[in-house]
Amino acid sequence: MGRFALQRFMYMVITLWVIITLTFFLMHTMPGSPLQHEDKLPPELKEEILKEYGLDKPLPVQYVTFLGKLAQADLGSSFKYDGRSVTDLIMQGFPASLQLGIQATIIGVIFGIILGCVSALRRGTWVDNVANVFSILGYSVPNFVLATLLSYYVGVKLQWLPPAKWDGPEYSILPTLSLAVLVMATIARYIRTEMLEVLGQDYMKTAKAKGLSARTAIIKHALRNALIPAVTVLGPLIIGLITGSLVVEQIFAIPGMGWMFVDSIQVNDYTVIMGITIFYSALIIVGMFLVDVLYGIIDPRIRIGGVQE
């Protein structure tokens, strides 16, 4: 396991470096420069400023400086919020987004597994049918629609829960639900299909032939095998959560990263856009790494090599 995880970790670091490099050079091969539109600035002063930011140096030197600063979590400072560092801004928005993401993942995965299992074990009954309709709905209704509906009906009309803002645990319930439904529906569909497949496998017959009860056989032999494909879909789901949070945070006016990102794009806050892009990439890559490790934990065939004579 150690070797497998280390190898995946190295992949992660390399991918991260490639993305950072690409982002840097993309930004610098774009036409225009940061001071292009500052026409009233005398040329000497322009040069002075460029010098101060190190923009007069050759590109490779700038690249090394950039990497060096990045290593110290220095992403430059925001244009809009005078003097505030991008890192500061990210760290201000990140906790809310992280909490939302984690809550949605946990709730979605747990209920997805339960729904998928129940559905498979009660195949063809009304329980299965209800669960299927539920997961198809969850799968096809976009989260911004769901978020709007929840905020309006549960929040404004019924007034059961706060319709927006971020002032305590109860404020996180509706946005979490908006994001969790897709996770739950996706996981439930995978688990149902795979569970049905696994129940027909020979090793389930072996388990029963040993004298295990149907229940024990399912818990000890079927469940883990049925989870494997669901783990592979966790990667895309994490990406879905991140992009989903961009919109959901807007709808519920949550001061998270997604909200900040959209805001920075609207006002053209150059360094913040770049900083958050890199941060999101890093987040996704770390998420993929964790999924890989989880995959290795669940499926021994991934982490340990084949036949040994």
Partner: peptide, 24 residues
């Protein structure tokens, strides 16, 4: 019947590649 299976009567199947649980 569960008490009989595996204790009094046991069974081996055709395909050893698929009759063992790959994750245990």
């Amino acid at each position: 019947m569960e008490e009989m299976r595996g204790k009094e009567i046991a069974m081996i199947f055709q395909d050893p590649m698929t009759s063992l649980n790959p994750t245990m």
